[in-house]
């Protein structure tokens, strides 16, 4: 043990490397934890995104075009996350279509985001069943859902003319609730 006293002051490279590695792993975990515990945005500017609207639905606005949220600045946006296999979403679809037809002239747009794992024939049937004409597109790779930290469907975000989120529903909304909010935002 006492053979090489000269070595004593040497910095143990292996140990330092190990410590650095552990610190790095813990830092990544901390980062991940901060992402996980981050809730959905409930106020402030709505995260911008772009989405390609389905091109094979008869009568759908912006069909086949790529739309971005920011291009609707100055309009009220109802951003609705749905999926064809989600029963409560079906009740909303009808209400959303009504609201869109009633108020589109007053600067209101409804954007439907078809949540991940969907997008097949079932999604098209769904849109045709309700005669949906407001723009809808597929959430490729769940990127938009991640941006808004949604945890399921339906979830609905109401965004005002300045691009700020004013209301969030983490459940199906009632049509009367939505009309109250729109009234507050100056639509009638």
């Amino acid at each position: 043990m006492s053979e090489e006293p000269a070595k004593k002051s040497r910095i143990p490279i292996g140990l330092v490397l190990l410590a650095v590695l552990i610190v790095a792993v813990l830092a990544v975990m901390a980062w991940r934890l901060s992402i996980v515990s981050q809730g959905r945005p409930t106020s402030g500017p709505a995260p911008d995104f772009s989405m390609t609207v389905f091109d094979d639905i008869e009568g759908m606005e912006y069909a086949g075009e790529t739309i971005t949220l920011s291009q609707f600045r100055g309009q009220i946006v109802i951003l609705n996350f749905w999926a064809s296999w989600c029963d409560p979403c079906r009740d909303e679809a009808e209400a959303l279509e009504n609201i869109w037809r009633l108020y589109r002239d007053q600067g209101l747009i409804v954007i439907g985001v078809d949540h991940a794992a969907d997008g097949g024939p079932a999604a098209r049937e769904y849109m045709l069943e309700f005669g949906i004409s407001y723009p809808n597109g597929l959430d490729m790779g769940s990127k938009i859902g991640d941006l808004y930290h949604i945890t399921g469907v339906p979830e609905t975000f109401v965004i005002d003319r300045d691009g700020n989120i004013v209301e969030v529903f983490v459940r199906p909304f009632r049509e009367s609730e939505m009309l109250d909010i729109l009234e507050r935002l100056g639509v009638e």
């Binding site: 999926a83 296999w85 991940a116 969907d118 097949g120 024939p121 079932a122 769940s142």
Partner: peptide
């Protein structure tokens, strides 16, 4: 692997989303 049931292969996943996806694969 569908994004709804993470880490569960699609062939043994029982959610509606996965059933739809399997029907689509069949088609």
């Amino acid at each position: 692997y569908c994004p709804i049931c993470e880490n569960v292969p699609l062939d043994v996943c029982g959610t509606r989303a996965c059933i739809d996806a399997r029907n689509e694969i069949r088609q």
